[in-house]
């Protein structure tokens, strides 16, 4: 239980996928203009990360590894994720239209989100078992949601700021992301202290 908590907390705060590992920067910069959009995207990412991990971990462990097909990991994972996202979208549309209405538009975006592919590959290379992989995916997704949501608030302020002409738009957004990232660096030693 303690190990699972450590995995969860370090994935959310210390090794934040967006602010520390630079995965999923495109949606982080592209869809963080309004907080409701940011939350919708974040929740969809958590959902897809969990589904993707639940599918890719057994494939790697029971299909690729016993047959020494580890080198097919990249191709198999991206195809599984792409197919899965399509399938989930069709399933939601048919059976849970309310959820599809709120998350549907974000789902196609996530297929080529590097955070989703990144988390499935990292779970394998870190040697996690199935439960640990799911917890780590949940943590990464929550960390993504947290970063998106916090940054949407920062961006609201940025819109009103009077930046130099050449910094307007993306450059000033990146500088703001840098400052948010400094804040997250503060969590550096927290896990060791918390669970020591």
């Amino acid at each position: 239980m303690k190990e699972l908590l450590i995995i969860l907390m370090s994935a959310v705060l210390v090794d934040n996928y967006v602010l520390n590992k630079f995965l999923g920067i495109c949606p982080f910069l592209g869809v963080s203009k309004k907080s409701d959009q940011a939350v919708g995207m974040g929740v969809s990412v958590i959902f897809v990360m969990l589904v993707a991990t639940a599918a890719t971990w057994p494939i790697q462990t029971y299909l690729l590894d016993p047959n020494e097909l580890g080198y097919l990991q990249t191709i198999v994972f991206i195809l599984v994720i792409a197919a899965l996202v399509q399938f989930v979208e069709i399933f939601l549309k048919k059976f849970i239209p309310a959820l599809h209405k709120s998350l549907g538009v974000y789902l196609p975006l996530i297929t080529t989100n590097c955070a989703v592919l990144g988390v499935t590959i990292n779970n394998i290379s870190d040697g996690y078992n199935f439960v640990e992989s799911m917890v780590s995916s949940l943590g990464c997704g929550l960390g993504f949601l947290l970063a998106m949501w916090l940054f949407a608030g920062v961006r609201g302020r940025l819109e009103e700021s009077d930046a130099p002409e050449c910094f307007k738009g993306i450059p000033i957004t990146l500088v703001a992301a840098s400052i948010v990232s400094v804040a997250f660096m503060g969590f550096g030693g927290i896990i060791d202290k918390l669970f020591a």
Partner: peptide
């Protein structure tokens, strides 16, 4: 470290814009 990446990238794009 991570924050420096965002900062340098932002400044570089601003420079190219300028």
């Amino acid at each position: 470290a991570a924050p420096g990446g965002f900062l340098v990238f932002g400044c570089l794009i601003a420079l190219v814009n300028k």
